[in-house]
Design a protein around this nucleic acid. Sequence first.
DNA 1: TAGATTGTTAATCGATTAACAATC
DNA 2: TAGATTGTTAATCGATTAACAATC
Lengths: 188, 188
Amino acid sequence: MDEGVDRISSKELSEIIGFSASQIRQDFNNFGEFGQQGYGYNVVDLHREISNIIGLNKKYHIALIGVGNFGTAVAKYSFKEMGFHIDALFDNNPEKVGQVLNGVEITDTNFLETYLSKHDIDIVAITTPSSVAQDLADRLVICGVKAIWNFAPVDLTVPDDVVVENVSLLDSLMTVSYLLNELKDATV
Amino acid sequence: MDEGVDRISSKELSEIIGFSASQIRQDFNNFGEFGQQGYGYNVVDLHREISNIIGLNKKYHIALIGVGNFGTAVAKYSFKEMGFHIDALFDNNPEKVGQVLNGVEITDTNFLETYLSKHDIDIVAITTPSSVAQDLADRLVICGVKAIWNFAPVDLTVPDDVVVENVSLLDSLMTVSYLLNELKDATV
DNA sequence: TAGATTGTTAATCGATTAACAATC
DNA sequence: TAGATTGTTAATCGATTAACAATC
């Protein structure tokens, strides 16, 4: 009678996350058969399978360029438990270079290429002003970086085999304003 | 012969933004008929209509709670041109209270209710640690705040008539890792 | 008027849901 | 075995695309 702890049915899941049981079963099945008829899904197995799918079983090495307010905030964020490690920090401000943040020393951005040629970096975060973001992206692409996590409010142009994920505060804020207006319209 | 400056067709738009011309026409039409047969869309009219739809023609007054790295970064971000004004900053750290950031003085969070009762605030940004976010959300709801821009990595529980927009760095980072894995799978 | 392009309807496509046979 | 719940197919729904009449 040790139910609900190590197994879960698509129906139970649907009640928790709001997708239909049917859709959950179909979606899971796209990635393989990890359920068991008459039993449901083993939560440990399920967790492992999903982690595999989204790649959370691996460790990711991150470098961050631009240690301003945003860069500092990101650098201090605790991603480590999820396997994301910030290995290197870069800034072109001589006053910041050499400082240590969260146990990582800030390096001059001039040494970006040198560093990347010597270390395996999976993702590079750009938290610089927009004006230099594309320039940095170009340099990263030349270095063979395949994933850019871009906080600068510009659309970076990169080859097809490079992934760019934008974090846009303005987009998010515009979403708020849209939702707020919708809300007001609905109540009028 | 002054084309391409003050008018644009759904076909031209589709080439720029990548949605089909058909879809653009149908979507625009959902919000009203602001094109002209045989001519296209007047770009000034179109801009105004879309701004109206997403509510960008208005000014928004924002208060921000939690002037840490993230809060500081957000406070310094230039949203003003888009009509978003950060009017107030709150923090419970006595050392920060009284300091001025971007022309706005930091107020003790204890005065949150007092401030909100005296000023019209449209959106409140929560850039505090997760531990106090729900508590603050509850207080904001009581004060009648209808839009919360939440940077704390927690799912806030609020009534149906309150909008919450979450900015989740971890979600964004997990998206990067998923895309990166997809990319690798595609090239193998 | 002729040409262009919208607004809008019909056709297609894909995604979601429902149903049920397979099977643990 | 009987009950439960998946994997998977069929039915439904909605969204996208294509087509074209309306009209500027």
